[in-house]
Design a protein around this nucleic acid. Structure first.
Length: 306
DNA sequence: CTCAATAGCGCG
DNA sequence: AAAGCGCGCTATTGAG
């Protein structure tokens, strides 16, 4: 019964939010969907997208991916999708200057496997799938300021075990532990946190007596520099790409931004040339102490380009 | 019929 | 009592 309900929810969600809604919003003249991007909505500096929201088009499930497959290039055109690889964790390495994490990225390692290798004391090529899954949950959890309770719930282990994982992580990544402490402390004193480019997020609740509000502010303090710096960097990349394209190039259009990804529609016979240039511009949009890595894909649909 | 609040869920 | 950051959209419910 439970499985049937969950399956029903998935199907009705995809049907009502995408399959039924999107075709109604196709512009009569251009015959395309046009979203609105908003530059002054989010607390962290990301863009938001509405009417329709093109930043939440499905991809994670097989069925969802088929919906993304409906976003197709025009005649003689190809879609290029270019996304930053692990950009928030790279920013965490850069800001915290943790030697171990910097090293993982300098050597272009799979960061979740590298984390698992360190935490579970096994060689990186002997990390099991389950170990990698748990390390990945920790890496993401760190970015969000997650507690042992949250991690336990996420990976379905006891709270005690989750705490052991977190302790093991911080023992091996002391720079990250220090960064977390320092960030919380300076947020309390200054009342704000900031991105690599110096953009601030004020946190008026950071010293609130109400512990629930304060703890939320503390988690925001941890997350905002990483999510916000990522937003800064991709915005800089968009400006660089825009300048490179110039005002008179019908062979390439930047058509979407999805937080760590840029999507282009380009003339088919120039796709390789453009793909390389986009990758170069995005990877060099901002200099960190470790390389920025961009994965580029191409195809006749947005789905294929991933 | 509109409006607002809530639950739930799609994405990074 | 809550427990993981940031969004926007659909369906439902209740009020006017």
């Amino acid at each position: 019964m439970v499985d049937l309900i969950l399956s029903y929810r998935t199907l009705t969600k995809l049907n009502s939010t995408y399959l039924e809604a999107l075709p109604k919003q196709i512009d009569l003249h251009t015959k395309r969907l046009h979203t609105s991007y908003h530059q002054a909505v989010t607390a962290t500096g990301r863009l938001s997208s509405s009417n329709p929201n093109l930043q939440n088009i499905p991809i994670r499930s097989e069925l969802g991916a088929r919906i993304r497959g409906a976003f197709i290039a025009g005649k003689d055109r190809v879609i290029i999708a270019a996304d930053y690889s692990q950009i928030e964790l790279r920013i965490m390495a850069h800001i915290s200057q943790d030697a171990n994490l910097l090293n993982a990225f300098k050597n272009d390692q799979d960061v979740h496997s590298a984390t698992a290798s360190t935490m579970f004391q096994v060689a990186i090529d002997e990390v099991t799938k389950e170990q990698r899954r748990r390390a990945k949950a920790i890496n993401f959890g760190l970015i969000y300021g997650m507690s042992a309770f949250g991690l336990a719930k996420q990976i379905d282990v006891s709270r005690t075990e989750a705490k052991e994982y977190i302790d093991a992580y911080f023992e091996n990544y002391p720079g990250v532990a220090q960064y977390m402490e320092d960030t919380r402390e300076s947020a309390k004193i200054q009342g704000y946190v900031e991105t690599v480019m110096g953009r601030r997020l004020y946190l008026p609740q950071i010293n609130a007596k109400n512990k629930m509000l304060q703890q939320h502010a503390l988690r925001t303090a941890i997350n905002a520099p990483m999510q916000g710096s990522s937003a800064d960097i991709i915005k800089k990349a968009m400006l660089d790409v825009h300048d490179w394209i110039g005002s008179n190039n019908d062979d390439i259009k930047m058509i979407m931004q999805v937080h760590d990804e840029l999507v282009f529609e380009v003339k088919a016979d120039r796709v390789d040339e453009f793909a390389h240039k986009i990758q170069d511009l995005m990877e060099n949009a901002y200099l960190l102490d470790i390389p920025l890595k961009v994965d580029v894909g191409t195809g006749s649909s947005w789905q294929e380009a991933h």
